[in-house]
Write a protein that binds this DNA or RNA. Structure first.
Length: 548
RNA sequence: UGGGGUGUGGCCAAGUGGUAAGGCAACGGGCUUUGAACCCGUCAUUCGCAGGUUCGAAUCCUGCCACCCCAGCCA
């Protein structure tokens, strides 16, 4: 991670700053989550950027919780967020801070602003403030309280702090310019009254600073050399700069904005994600279908794959919509080398081998064709085996290479079989198959001379373990969900549960993830029981051929 | 409507006056006891559009167009 020569406009800028000796000390960044929700893959982009830069430039990164709104924040999220960042592979070391750590200093800076006649206490109601702010095309109107004497402002602000006023009755506002074309500069609110318990400061405060006042000051106090945030804060930069320019502080970080990650068929808004949980569309915030880091983890996606994805998507100011294929690619690429292979059937179909007699034969198979270090296991073959229903077709599509009536196919690591008969139940559904095998076609010592076109996986009756296989797909059917009724956009097949089979050795193996040959990568649910192991599909294998 | 941004192949993205990197996807081929992996090859005469400057422009200038963000006492 260290020696990579990543090029993007932010890293280029940092290199220039270093070359021009504009940076005092070391490069310092921060990741500032608000503890009001779980981290998702969009956050991963920011985490990889901020922590990645610190790693590359021998700098430091603060993990700073932006906890200025006690109404929506809670300590559970603080814990979860830390777990997710660690899982992703980053370490803030001793640099864990909270915006609330700075409440006393923030308050002092606010008084300083009042003393400099740069802030005033405003008695207007929330509605009145909105009405007097103006519109995009109309300037705002100055508050009647705008020119209160310094002493009166100071007195009122101190009484706000003491708790003498109700929520919403007064705010502290910056005195900037009600005619500014940038609405953020029209005397923005700096402090509001919230009589609520804060997860860290308890009941010490009943006034809480707003983001625009807090963030820039925290950045400055921590010596953040590059304050990176997403594009929607671009309009706030003049305010960020204004605050730091109007208080007595000796450091002024530059705010640099980049575009946030958008992923096809995926929604990342906390509001909508929460709705999915509440309405039981998914089971929880860490459901394997969720784009949360916890969800990705429970789906078996390795942290390294997420990091690689973030590296490949780049960092720019352009709006983007990433295809899910890139993430899938990163996941497979990560799992390919290290994951043992196994055979699994989602829809088992019994096949009776008519010419097999006696004990089941044992066959050896490597866990990975190329990575011999993963070792091998023993499979068995006998008079009753199972194949996947999708690997047999009475009326095969063109170029079908699997089993068909009278056709032959290779059973992976075992023998070639030939279908002799299709057995049906009373409804005419295929119940089982009868086939013969070619004893001289044993894998590795085949002298049969037969050349089957395809190879399919199988599990013999005595070697079969019953498992649950859960296949996941996108949660939404629309590339850009959120524009329509959520319900109509949901993918009804985002989770399909199969009562399947795997070879016993897979269940006994300790590896967390497997590749089920010809199907995909799966994570063994660590919480599932040994009597019914559950496997979550992490990713499909790429398909070089599709029926129809 | 005012302000702030962004426009390079299907999706990302290099490039900052010298004649369009790379990745993903797609397509064709090789290899193959995973239709996987792997290996080869193809894929922008053109950089939102129109003018202009220049020997030379994706890069400079002018005008236009499209899209995104902003009117929380959220962050």
């Amino acid at each position: 991670m260290k020696n990579e020569d990543l090029r993007d406009f932010i890293r280029n800028r940092i290199r220039e700053d270093i070359a021009a000796e504009r940076i005092p000390g070391s490069v310092t960044t921060r990741f500032p989550p608000e503890p009001n929700g779980y981290l998702h893959i969009g956050h991963a982009k920011s985490i990889c950027l901020n922590f990645g830069i610190a790693n590359e430039f021998d700098g430091v990164t603060y993990l700073r919780f932006d906890d200025t709104n006690p109404l929506t924040e809670s300590p559970e999220y603080v814990t979860a967020i830390q777990e997710d960042i660690r899982w992703l592979g980053f370490d803030w070391q001793e640099n864990l801070t909270f915006a609330s750590d700075y409440f006393p200093q923030l308050y002092a800076f606010a008084e300083e602003l009042i003393e400099r006649e740069k802030a005033f206490v405003c008695d207007l109601s929330q509605d009145e403030i909105r009405e007097t702010r103006g519109t995009f095309s109309r300037p705002g109107v100055e508050s009647p309280y705008r020119n209160r004497p310094i002493q009166e402002n100071l007195d009122l602000f101190r009484r706000m702090r003491k708790g003498e006023f109700e929520n919403g009755t007064r705010v502290l506002r910056a005195k900037i310019d009600m005619r500014s074309p940038n609405v953020n500069m029209r005397d923005p609110v700096l402090y509001r009254i919230i009589h609520a318990e804060h997860h860290r400061s308890g009941s010490d405060w009943c006034i809480y600073p707003m983001y625009d006042f807090t963030h820039c000051i925290c950045d400055a106090l921590e010596g953040i050399t590059h304050s990176l945030c997403t594009l929607e804060f671009e309009d706030h930069r003049p305010l960020y700069d204004w605050v730091l320019d109007n208080i007595n502080i000796n450091f002024h970080p530059p705010q640099i904005e980049f575009s946030r990650l958008n992923l096809e068929y995926t929604l990342m808004s906390k509001r909508v994600l929460n709705k999915l949980v509440q309405s039981r569309v998914v089971e929880s915030w860490d459901d394997p279908r969720m784009p949360t880091l916890a969800g990705l983890r429970n789906r078996g996606i390795p942290a390294a794959a997420v990091r690689e994805f973030c590296r490949r998507i780049g960092v720019t100011k352009q709006d983007n919509l990433m295809e899910t294929e890139l993430l899938d690619y990163c996941v497979r690429n990560e799992l390919e080398q290290t994951t043992p292979r196994g055979m699994a059937l989602r829809n088992p179909l019994r096949v009776d081998i008519t010419n097999f007699e006696g004990e089941e034969v044992e066959l050896s198979a490597n866990w990975h064709a190329k990575n011999k270090e993963l070792g091998s296991r023993i499979l068995t073959f006998g008079s009753t085996i199972f194949i996947d229903r999708s690997d047999f077709a009475e009326d095969p599509p063109p170029k079908y290479k699997r089993l068909v009536p009278d056709g032959i196919v290779r059973l992976r690591y075992a023998f070639i079989i030939q279908c002799e008969e299709v057995i049906r139940d009373n409804n005419g559904e295929i119940e089982s198959l009868r086939a013969r095998y070619f004893p001289e076609s044993r894998s590795g010592e085949d002298t049969s001379g037969l050349r089957p076109k395809g190879v399919i996986q199988f599990v013999s009756a005595q070697n079969a373990a019953t498992v649950q296989i859960r296949d996941y797909d996108r949660l939404f059917n629309t590339r850009i969900p959120g524009r329509d009724e959520l319900e109509s956009e949901l993918n009804p097949d985002s989770r399909i549960v199969y009562d399947g089979m795997v070879e016993k050795a897979v269940v006994d193996h300790t590896a967390p993830s497997f590749q089920f040959e010809r199907i995909g990568y799966y994570l063994r649910d660590p919480a599932s029981t040994t009597s019914l192991p559950i496997f979550h599909r992490t990713a499909k294998l790429s398909e070089g051929w599709k029926p129809k």
